[in-house]
Write a protein that binds this DNA or RNA. Structure first.
Lengths: 222, 222
DNA sequence: AGAATTCAATCAAACGTTTGAAAGGTCAAA
DNA sequence: TTTGACCTTTCAAACGTTTGATTGAATTCT
């Protein structure tokens, strides 16, 4: 029973061997994919022995799940911090919506700190990996539901309507694509990469889009 | 100990070994990723010997590039067929824009025929594979540039403006996400998968979004 | 016949995992 | 305080399997 976690620190711990393995695996899994990552490379980056992976996580697959759990734990606090305030009026909901999209996009696109975590999650999703379940429950499910509620309050639509759910996904899709298709975007834009400066320009466009969409829906009577 | 193969078959199409390998690789690469796909599985699906891959394409990496080229050739005709008509007025541009998004989204999300091709391309993009160059030149570059032109005509903005380019990517991102995040979307929506029926609902939302965004931009004076 | 292609068999390298021993820590008994 | 048994953790080495690629003979086509 060698399971222990440090509650004072957020994210994977670089101190213990298990924490170092999770941190290393999270980064390499995200960058190269699960199958393309060898246990030897993970152990080397974590500065430990290969056998530690089997010892602590039962194997490579177990380490993958531990990475998803570590991400969920790390992102949980961030989600909760954004869930503190609940809007009561449509205008308040609109402001909150714009703020949330700003934060979400900045973290997803621009943040260098979040880059490995985001890469891991996106790869897990597009690969249909076993981490989807954990990630969905910890992050996507609650976030999407909440965004639907706020959007419904802002526009007067039904938060449980199919079209509203799809719409919220389309907004998220706008953001996610700039991470997935970074190689394409940078090439077309003439950028070398998407740093904070480029991310700011993108966020500006996405916020303008959302503003226009809210205005268009608000104009329609219930 | 072998099974006889009738070469004088009257099968549906007499496919060459190279063609069968490309078709098989395209499908498996798209579904499982390049590294996770073994040459043995490709050869088995293509009903040929492993050595054929090295013989025809010089190796696994060569087959990957051949897949990208095959996709580019296949998609080139489709792109050209949509590029036939050039709009002259803003309203004409708006109609064309909506039509193009409809076609693009239907092919990307709903089409069962295109599914393997789309999966391969998206994986190549997110993996930063060597096929990006071919795919960009054959499909993404021309398409994006053209969409920028049409959008600019519809709204009176500058087709070379940075914000316009980013905006067009955001529209594409809306579509792509429903392919990338199919596992997430179906789970939240309570669907089993995204077939033609679900795709139609999504396209409807995306077209409404685009309509609203055009109206909002059009309203602003030049 | 001669070139082009496909085949079974085989190669070295890399893979994830396992092994048994060594190292580190804890704690009750001496 | 010292001792020694016990448990956890780390380590080098090796395991069997699978990988992409290659070989030379067999087959097919021109």
């Amino acid at each position: 029973m060698g399971e222990e976690r440090d509650k004072t620190d957020s994210g994977p711990r670089p101190e213990s061997t298990a924490g170092a393995l999770i941190a290393a695996a999270l980064e390499i899994f995200g960058r190269k994919g699960f199958d393309s990552t060898s246990t030897r490379e993970i152990a080397a980056v974590a500065k430990t022995n290969i056998a530690s992976i089997s010892y602590h996580f039962g194997g490579k697959a177990g380490l993958r799940i531990a990475c998803a759990e570590a991400f969920a734990a790390h992102i949980g606090a961030l989600i909760n911090s954004l869930t503190a305030h609940e809007p009561t009026s449509p205008t308040e909901a609109e402001d909150l919506l714009l703020t949330l999209i700003d934060r979400l996009a900045s973290h997803l696109i621009g943040s260098a700190e979040m880059r490995p975590l985001v890469a891991f999650v996106l790869r897990e999703i597009s690969d249909g990996g076993p981490g989807i379940d954990i990630i969905y429950k910890a992050m996507i499910g609650p976030s999407h539901q909440r965004l639907c509620r706020i959007w419904a309050l802002a526009t007067g639509e039904d938060p449980d309507a199919e079209a509203v759910k799809i719409f919220v996904f389309s907004i998220i899709g706008q953001i996610v694509y700039f991470r997935i298709g970074t190689a394409i975007v940078t090439r077309r834009m003439g950028w070398t990469d998407i740093g904070p400066g480029e991310a700011a320009k993108i966020v500006q466009v996405l916020k303008a889009n959302l503003r226009d969409l809210i205005a268009a829906r608000r104009r329609l009577p219930k």
